[in-house]
Design a binder for these strands. Structure first.
Lengths: 196, 196
DNA sequence: CTTTGCAGAGTGAATGTTCACTTACTTGAT
DNA sequence: ATCAAGTAAGTGAACATTCACTCTGCAAAG
């Protein structure tokens, strides 16, 4: 359900992303959004019915972008290579769209409404959809450990990733997330790989 | 710096915790706090100078409580036992004070001020202060893996813990955190322990 | 080719609500 | 009589949203 977005709508959700980066959740107001767009507050409502719709559009756009990128990771490679590619792709994405990191945590983005929670859930599921089978395949082929379940492995990996993003964000995006991410991938792999 | 809190002040920060649980960051308003206390809004200000002070008091109280509990984990036991005790204690604490889980994420609790950030930092450091040496000792004694650095191990462990808490909270505290926590501890230990 | 009319995209001013916080007053216990 | 702890009734600021309106480009009708 990739809802079509007009040019202006795209500009607005990009501006919203920039605001999130520069001034956090509290900075994402219609007033600031209008200022960022260099037009009046009321003009926003020519393009979106409500602030909620803007946030949902942003989250949906984010999910679609990530999905699109993850979708064409070759299915032929071995699990370890796929694992690496999966996370490298994500670190690359957030490196070029740092504002969306705030949305990843997206806790208290707004008074949590039905629609927003749904959009967040979709976002999490996109990641799961691609990570889960890679881990399972790796376990079946004996390259990843079978000492704990797939779910437990995924939990640990996702937690590690989320914390990495959290640190990057609270450090105001000052360090190189692709380099640090590379290290994270390496240490996680070291931990979950079966010893030869 | 365990600032003395009056009885009323304690009641207020507990009410604040309850509000956080039931209605999230956005629900923590002076109006709601007053209603929860069966008070007028202005009465709050007899006990705290500002909302910021309430939040700081809450975070400080939280840090102190955790510190107190973690402090008397026997230093004699082996690293694995200490690791277990450390997390069991935390799961036990949050099980009896579920409202404070929200504060663990403590992101966007309020327009981030100097004092609040400081209190959050202190909270993170309490955990670090007790976890770090346990991991290091375990590595030195060869019971935990040396394949990756202490920092990387701690990162993975903390990320896993945080995500566990996040899941508990978004599940509205419906599942048994002590039981699930036990499983989490077990699978993390399985992963980080050296094979015999 | 000009006129008519309409739609898309903008405006400033105002709406009602909620927020943290203040002021002036009251009460009951020591 | 003092004073800690309460109250009612406000304040101004910020918020999302709505209102009546203007401007501009375009397409059909005369």
């Amino acid at each position: 359900m990739t809802t079509e977005l007009s040019e202006r709508q795209q500009e607005i959700i990009e501006a919203a992303g920039r605001l999130l980066t520069s001034s956090g959740v509290g900075g994402l107001t219609i007033k600031n959004l209008a200022k960022e767009m260099k037009f009046s507050e009321s003009a926003i409502y020519r393009h979106f019915a409500s602030k909620e719709e803007i946030i949902i559009a942003m989250l949906t756009f984010l999910a679609d972008s990530i999905e699109q990128r993850l979708a064409h990771i070759p299915g032929s490679a071995d699990p370890e290579a796929k694992f690496k590619a999966l996370f490298e792709e994500q670190f690359r994405f957030f490196n070029s769209h740092p504002h969306f990191v705030v949305a990843v945590f997206s806790d208290g983005l707004m008074k949590e409404t039905e629609g927003i929670n749904e959009a967040i859930l979709k976002l999490i599921n996109v990641k799961m959809k691609y990570l889960m089978p890679v881990i399972m395949e790796g376990q079946q082929k004996g390259v990843f450990t079978n000492a704990i379940t797939t779910e437990e492995l995924v939990h640990i990996i996702m937690g590690t990733f989320k914390l990495q993003m959290f640190k990057w964000r609270t450090a105001n995006f000052q360090f190189d997330i692709q380099r640090n991410g590379e290290n994270m991938i390496h240490s996680v792999l070291t931990l979950i790989k079966n010893k030869k």
